[in-house]
Design a protein around this nucleic acid. Sequence first.
DNA 1: CTAGTCTGATTAAACGCTTAATCAGATTTG
DNA 2: CAAATCTGATTAAGCGTTTAATCAGACTAG
Lengths: 360, 360
Amino acid sequence: MAPRPNLSDIARALGVSSATVSNALSGKGRVSAQLSRQIAEKARELGYVPSLAGRALSTGRSHVLGLVLADIGHPLFPQFAQAIEQAATKAGYGVLIGDSRGDVKTQTAAIDQLIERGADGIILVPRHGTRIAEINCPVAVIDTPSTPGNTVSADHWQGGRLIGAHLRDLGHTRLAVIGLHQDSNVQADRIGGIRTGFGPEGSVRTLWIDALEAAAGPGCELGLAELVRHGYTAFAAVSDIHALRAVSELQRSGLSVPVHVTVTGFDDLHWARSISPALTTVRMDMEKIARLAVADLLLQIEPDRSAPPVDEATRPQAVPMELVVRNSSASPNENLFPSQDNNNNPDPDTLPSREGTNNA
Amino acid sequence: MAPRPNLSDIARALGVSSATVSNALSGKGRVSAQLSRQIAEKARELGYVPSLAGRALSTGRSHVLGLVLADIGHPLFPQFAQAIEQAATKAGYGVLIGDSRGDVKTQTAAIDQLIERGADGIILVPRHGTRIAEINCPVAVIDTPSTPGNTVSADHWQGGRLIGAHLRDLGHTRLAVIGLHQDSNVQADRIGGIRTGFGPEGSVRTLWIDALEAAAGPGCELGLAELVRHGYTAFAAVSDIHALRAVSELQRSGLSVPVHVTVTGFDDLHWARSISPALTTVRMDMEKIARLAVADLLLQIEPDRSAPPVDEATRPQAVPMELVVRNSSASPNENLFPSQDNNNNPDPDTLPSREGTNNA
DNA sequence: CTAGTCTGATTAAACGCTTAATCAGATTTG
DNA sequence: CAAATCTGATTAAGCGTTTAATCAGACTAG
């Protein structure tokens, strides 16, 4: 394969200096319109592609962003990666991935690695309870609004409120919230929101899977049927994963969702619409979050970027979540929506509100 | 923030030439052990980190690999990304992601983009039916062994055989395979394997979701209950996603899995163990695939890499898949394994074979 | 007509690293 | 003891780009 042509190749071919070529292509210096056109044409003809390495060395900017996730294995990661990649590409940046495998030390190592690789900035989705290390490079943190140092994120609290209000409006009065562990800002916000949205009249208790599993082993029963016997009619999980687990356990106990008991999730994972019953959940606006995170980073990296895509004043740190009502939630003790009305409506998501029809 | 020290900073501090420092740190030229130690120490003291940009410009290698996936949104992506990232990191390479959003043109664009960004090689997980574009840079293709140009991949055919044999051993004689569309090499291999493993005695038919949806709209019923009435006792989906859909549809029809009918999936997606019934499926060895893919790439990039991690002769193009028997499969017309034995055994995956107990 | 301004280009240095070529001095060899 | 070899370092060029400084010529202004 022929070595890629460089600036001087173009320059030589046209009998000009390479600086002129550089100026012409970047539109920076003073080059006559005529010559500029010739250069552009020659560049295309030779199949010129600028060397990012050369440019990086010269400018000190690599035009690469690092993406560090607490756990790449997280089922939400694809959405994240896709959204970030898209936003970054649009801004002319590449995305380098780093994986912290859930470990705090590894996370720092991953960040350092990305910096060494020349990342101009880092987008960090930290592990629960992780303090953001002091990094001497632009960082955008996507965690939850209540985390100090958070740059932008979904409004988990408001998402929780959505769920809580939805359940209250359906007529539930006793609610059990299912969380994984206590030291997660995201989960704390979600649960706080759920309680708030559910209102002071309702009775709410929280189950921590971690604690239960510590006692009874991983994958153990959560004792949900027992709670149902005690009058709990609704289970709000802080993640679709746990909601799925709850649904399975309840169904094994002979309880029907949503006829006997309501279950809701969080995140609208890929399969949430496919399971039976389709999961009522709450979704974040990944695209917007990614766009804002990247925009914030770019603002830090190149403060003189012509038109700041987002006005700093109006920029919301917390991106609202959206309630997605499906078939796993219904009013208690009513035989509405048995499982067969599932999946037949063309796109249930476009009608996010179903409470009215329930209470009518 | 202080500008990062470079080679000459170290050199100046020690009164030697920067070339010596370079040699000492890379262990290449001739440097006395004593000076070498001094340099290493000084480097640590100053917090020296080599500039990848400078090195890249000088050597022509960026030490970055590009990872292009047909669709980043695919639920298997996290596993891929994690495995590749790990293998690459171990070899001293970074991973730049590209997303082709399922589109062939976008895929080519994404590859070009990565090359321009200086990727030394590309790991490509192509979209079904995509012909691998002629790329003038090292590529490792992860698709399926029957694809020409495939570098390494799971042995989808063999995985299919495992499923087919499993179902036959359970005693099923009428099997419906559920695929998405015909022009996917991976699916074709999996289905071929299933048929082979199921044996010539059994009767097999294939359902194409794409075709059904083209007629009846997306998300439509697949008519599985009808097939059950015609004597089909087992459904083998080419992906856990479709298996999940099948399970839901069957359950809505009042059929119990696995009591009335058996369903199997493919890929062992994250949630496959959590749903009810836990899905019998087949899993690929991502780590090994990633390792082999990266190793192959490195061999292309730097042919003189000291000890080739994998012997070319013994290197298997097709990495065996592993059958994971869970609770969605059972012998037909036997009331074995009703749904409550789910999830109570600590780790059912460690006992991949359950046929014996069934037939006893 | 000369000094000043503008335009369109060139020169040259710099970014941080690698590496082939060179070199001085010490050591070995015939 | 002179010649060849070996050792441990230096010099200098080069990778491809950007950019400040410079410069020649054409034009404007006083």
